[in-house]
């Protein structure tokens, strides 16, 4: 049963990737490309698809890790305040006229903000020589409120149009996806993914409880720290690629658990792949339904994701982790 499902799952993902490359407001015939088509394909669609894939993978995997680490089906990488911290940092950078790295400045400040907030959440969640799920979650929620409020405050007192538009960027925009950002972000995401995959057995054990994991010989606190760091790396990199895109981190692990089961060794990579494909799909929809205008992918993911999530909620007795 499961191999069949995995094959089905992979072919759907592959189909979406091809669609995202060749479909859109205008279709490309892959066997007969004009020069303009080729330019657009290489300079615009390919980086967009790669960025969507990377971001979605980072978010999907982060969600799966976080739901396990926090033992909470509601967890998603943004609940910890990482996104609002990143937005706030980017906004502060813009306000202070930080434009040293040209068009890389916003992504860079966003990344720094996300990383700083992760450290801060970790610091608040740290007690008696380890990270504690409830503390992490509460610290994250508190910081999230704080940063969103300060950002709102900045937005309402500032008459700077540029700031408003930059914050618009933070709400999930892939239209500016460019090759230049991809390598560095990809490194963080690959390192994070490697860390998680090497720890997925520990994650499996931790979901069943700290004592259980301990009795199996896992150093629970150390594993938790490594997983948390991996999640923070991936989420920060994804924010710097294209702002904050909601719902993927929350949703993908639930969908994958429903389709393929809850074993972290499969759940984490499959959530990653599903997240990437879903974001590609959302981006495809966002640029195709109202041409020549574009809808931000972040809103599309929520519009499509939320109803499916609610449907799943009805179908299943319990939304477990």
């Amino acid at each position: 049963m499961r191999p069949v499902r995995i094959i089905l799952f992979s072919s759907v993902v592959l189909g979406i990737l091809l669609l995202a490359l060749f479909a859109g407001p205008r279709m490309f015939n892959p066997f007969n490309l004009t020069t303009m088509d080729r330019d657009i394909l290489y300079a615009i669609r390919m980086p967009r698809v790669v960025v969507a894939m990377l971001m979605g993978m980072a978010l999907g995997a982060s969600g799966a890790i976080l739901q396990g680490v926090l033992r909470n089906p509601l967890a998603d990488p943004y609940i910890l305040g990482i996104s609002s911290g990143a937005s706030l940092c980017a906004a502060l950078g813009l306000l202070s006229g930080f434009y040293f790295f040209g068009s890389m400045s916003v992504p860079l400040t966003a990344f720094v903000g996300a990383a700083l907030v992760s450290v801060l959440v970790g610091a608040f969640g740290w007690k008696r020589g380890g990270l504690w799920p409830e503390r992490l979650l509460l610290a994250g929620i508190g910081l999230n409120f704080l940063f969103s409020a300060v950002l709102m405050l900045l937005m309402s007192v500032s008459s700077d149009e540029g700031l408003r538009r930059a914050v618009l960027w933070m709400f999930g925009d892939l239209s500016m996806a460019d090759w230049s950002l991809i390598p560095s972000a990809a490194v963080f995401i690959v390192v994070g993914m490697g860390l998680v995959l090497s720890r997925s057995k520990a994650l499996n054990a931790m979901i069943l409880g700290d004592e259980f994991a301990h009795s199996l010989g896992f150093a629970v606190q150390r594993e938790r720290l490594v997983l948390f760091a991996a999640m923070a790396l991936m989420t920060s990199a994804s924010v710097s690629l294209g702002g904050t895109i909601g719902f993927i981190g929350l949703l993908m692990p639930h969908i994958v658990r429903f389709l393929l089961g809850a074993d972290s060794r499969l759940l984490v990579p499959a959530s990653a792949v599903a997240g990437g494909a879903f974001l590609c799909f959302a981006d495809l929809v966002g640029r195709s339904i109202l041409p020549p205008m574009e809808l931000p992918s972040g809103t599309v993911t929520a519009v499509f994701g939320a109803p499916y999530f609610l449907y799943l909620l009805r179908r299943k007795d319990v939304l477990s982790i």
Partner: peptide, 27 residues
Amino acid sequence: RYSIEELIRSSPDVVIVGKGTGMDIRT
């Protein structure tokens, strides 16, 4: 919010960039 793809296809003869506030629009 305009699609860059569509903009390339419409091959404009002149691109005009309006002034932004806060930062250097050229950058």
